[in-house]
Design a protein around this nucleic acid. Structure first.
Length: 116
RNA sequence: AGAGUCGUCUGGGUCAUCGCGUUAUCCCUAUUAAUAGGAAUACCGAGGAAAGUCCGGACUCCGCAGAGCAAAGUGAUGGCUAACAGCCACCCGGGGCGACCCGCGGGAAAGUGCCACAGAAAAUGACCGCCUCGGCUUGCCGAGGUAAGGGUGAAACGGCGGUGUAAGAGACCACCGCGCCGGUGGUGACAUCGGCGGCAAGGCAAACCCCACUUGGAGCAAGACCAAAAAGAUGGCGCUUGAGAGCUGCUCGCUCGAGUCAUCAGGUAGGUUGCUUGAUCGCGCGAGUAAUUGCGCGACUAGAUGGAUGAUGACCCAUUCGCGCAAGCGAUGGACAGGAUCCGGCUUAUAGGGCGACUCUUCUU
């Protein structure tokens, strides 16, 4: 699981990341990520799970699994980064999808950072 | 043994590793000196419905001289409770051989309204039929009587039997039903017995309405405290005689330069609090048919806030499937469902399992 400092907390963080950030998507997930020097040093991650996924039990269980997977990869993100994961469809396992998307996002972030 | 009725409990278990949240202890760092951040260790960490948010309260704020209207809700009787639309007991009506179950149970002789389709008529009614009278073309027409019969309908103007009649009819009579009066039993709803009365009384009140009783409003996003920024008020200093800022350990010096500093009230963003020990639960004894309650002893560890429970492994138990005569082996791996101020209820969802009480039938002794 992710510790509290690695989680997005406010509504404005979510809207800024989803509206102005970059995107990477798969069949089941969409990953938004934003890198800016004004953001906190620790990488932060937030989840968006709609009611179409299932009832409250299902949504919480999906969120816990995603946080568990994301914990192993959050340290690979560069500092000053915020990430939002949106869940589109219900699935048995999100491990491969999330791992692939996060690797892609990290690759693009480090490339743009190199260009600077 | 079989068939049933009712109540109640449980809601996979044990262990290990990593991770997350609250609290406590200790250590480190920072300063505003009692807070913040970080690290370690320990303890604890979703439910019987946490759900729906349908009732009732606690708690908080606002309002409030008193009375009435409106609106909403409740509706047999007695009790329990903080309170209730809840619960218990009992009454009444209905169902079952029975254990037991079902019923939003005041008023339809205060008034208004509605009663689909069918049917003559849904409440000032005559379609068929029956009877009487009149007419003639002798089996039809007209006038009238009749709610016993037919047919329609969820429901047809008290039921049934007799007297009676042209035919009929509470027109009259007995029993039942209904209403009133009285006796007895019961706290009471009511039951039962006796007498009298006339047949006046179709259903719907979850149609309006009438009667009785209850209710001030909003809700933890309540409320309380702290309090950025921007704007405001007051005061100090200053506008080339330089306030203040940057460079610096300090002074000098250099550069920028027209506003700047302090206080105040308000209370936005944000934060803290409210926040979990309570009409609490378990056991024993006592009161009560029971709901419930008195006393004594013991127990109590979720408090998150984009919202903490996840991942992996081992064993056991349960389910299902396959192999097998069986023992067993292999695979599968759990119903409904996730706290958000807290309690009492109701309703709805729920795989499987355990326990208790009782009824009926059959057999044996």
């Amino acid at each position: 699981m992710l510790s509290a400092k690695n989680r997005l907390r406010t509504s404005s963080d979510f809207s800024r990341t989803t509206k102005t950030g970059h995107r990477a998507s798969s069949q089941q997930l969409v990953l938004y990520f934003l890198h800016h020097a004004d953001l906190p040093v620790e990488p932060q991650l937030g989840l968006i799970i709609s009611k179409s996924i299932g009832n409250s039990v299902t949504r919480h269980s999906v969120a816990r699994q995603l946080r568990h997977i994301a914990r192993q990869h959050i340290s690979t993100f560069p500092p000053h980064t915020q990430v939002v994961v949106r869940v589109l469809k219900k699935s048995e396992s999100y491990t491969e999808d999330l791992t692939g998307l996060m690797a892609k996002a990290v690759k693009r972030l480090t490339e743009t950072g190199a260009n600077k």
